[in-house]
Computed example of a mutant assay.
Amino acid sequence: MEIGFIGLGSMGSAMARNLVAAGHRVRAWNRSGGAIEGVAMLGAPAEAFDADAVMTMLSDDAAIRSVILDAGVLAAARPGLTNVVCSTISVAFARELAAAHERAGIGFVSAPVLGRPDVAAKGGLNVLVGGAPAAIDHVRPLLEAIGSRIWPLGDEAAAANAAKIAVNMMIAMAIEAMAEAVVLTEANGLPRAAFFELILGTLFGSRPYQSYSANIAAGSYAPGFKAELGLKDLRLAREAAGSAGRTLPMLDAAHARMAEAVAAGWGQLDWSAIAKFTLESGSRLGSAPAERLSA
């Protein structure tokens, strides 16, 4: 297939390489330029929409709105094109995008992914998919090129975005849970390495616990998924909960803790730096005023 690609950050670059390796012709636009072997670089995002499909991997709602909606590129898209948005975006904006694509007469699929850049490089992402069955079928070869498993989540595109936000919320809660458990166990003479060996070998052996317990054990928070992006995703979760008229107290607490970590100057560190904040500050979860922590 002829693929347009928008957004070549660490995740997007890995995905674009896998599309090339799968035999697709990929032409890409990136706000900060750059080059990838086998990918033809474009001068404007509108050029990416002269393709069979577009894969969009920009950072947030505002970036997608600016590059796609405000620039009016949908009106000039090739007939029959489907746009696959893999970004983590708000539920409300996913609905807005779906409506805008429908008005333009082109397909839209929400396909946020689970996995970090190292997983993306291996083509091992879990792809959460929402949208019309015909649109999904059209881009299935692309989804298979970037992921190890595709998870169909229904005809409503926004359902996939709600699932992605919920998963990220749960990961943040898991990181904070591990940090608080270490505070408790170390205060009673148990080294954190021994505690992590226990939990990973019994009840908590999933990938998030494996990955982030390693960060906590080593006291190393080199950027993977940045804390400022984690804060953004927790804000999206709070917005989605609020729109549904629901109160999620654990989410509010995790958002407050992530906001504290970012306010401490750790926004560019991995989002597991919320554990660093808990371990170093000794403050109770959610101790700072909620109005100061909004983001």
Rank of each mutant, 00 (worst) to 15 (best):
A22C: 09
T247N: 11
V84T: 10
Q210P: 01
A44P: 01
Q268L: 13
E96K: 05
I64S: 10
A227F: 10
A253M: 14
K232P: 05
A241R: 04
V26K: 04
A179L: 05
R65Q: 15
R192N: 09
A99V: 11
F225R: 10
S206L: 08
A46Y: 00
A227S: 14
V119F: 01
A179G: 15
A214K: 12
S110E: 12
S213A: 14
F5A: 11
S281P: 05
E291P: 00
F93Y: 15
Y212G: 08
M250G: 15
A193C: 03
L231C: 04
M250T: 15
G4Q: 07
F49A: 13
L125T: 09
W151D: 02
W266Y: 04
I175D: 07
F196N: 11
M15C: 13
V91S: 12
G38P: 03
S10E: 14
E186V: 11
G107R: 05
A92Q: 12
R140T: 15
S220Y: 00
R78W: 07
A237T: 03
E239I: 14
I136T: 14
S110T: 00
D52T: 06
R257T: 14
I36S: 02
M170E: 00
L143E: 12
E37W: 00
M1K: 09
T88L: 01
A62W: 02
I106N: 07
A21R: 15
P249H: 09
M55D: 01
H24C: 04
S90T: 15
G80F: 03
A104Y: 07
P112Y: 01
A222Q: 14
R17H: 07
A71P: 06
V109D: 13
E47M: 04
A120R: 01
A28T: 02
D252C: 09
Y212R: 10
I6F: 03
T278G: 04
S66L: 13
A21Q: 12
G9R: 04
L200R: 15
A237G: 15
A104E: 13
L125C: 09
P141Y: 07
L128E: 06
L236C: 06
P141M: 01
S87V: 07
E239G: 07
K226M: 15
G245Y: 03
G131Y: 02
G286W: 10
A256T: 02
L190H: 04
S59W: 00
V167K: 00
S59K: 05
L251P: 06
G4A: 12
Q210V: 14
E144K: 13
I216Q: 06
A145F: 03
P289Y: 00
L143K: 03
I36F: 02
A120C: 07
G147L: 09
A104C: 08
A177N: 09
G131S: 02
S32I: 04
A256I: 00
S287M: 03
D233T: 08
L97Y: 00
E37F: 02
E239P: 02
E47K: 03
G105Y: 09
R116D: 07
A218G: 05
D137E: 15
F5P: 09
P112W: 08
A264L: 13
A16C: 08
E291Q: 13
G80M: 03
A217G: 04
T88F: 03
G4F: 02
P249G: 13
G245Q: 05
N18H: 05
F277N: 08
H138S: 11
G7F: 04
T202N: 07
G147K: 02
V39N: 06
S66Y: 01
N83P: 01
P45L: 10
S110A: 15
G72C: 07
P117H: 12
A240C: 10
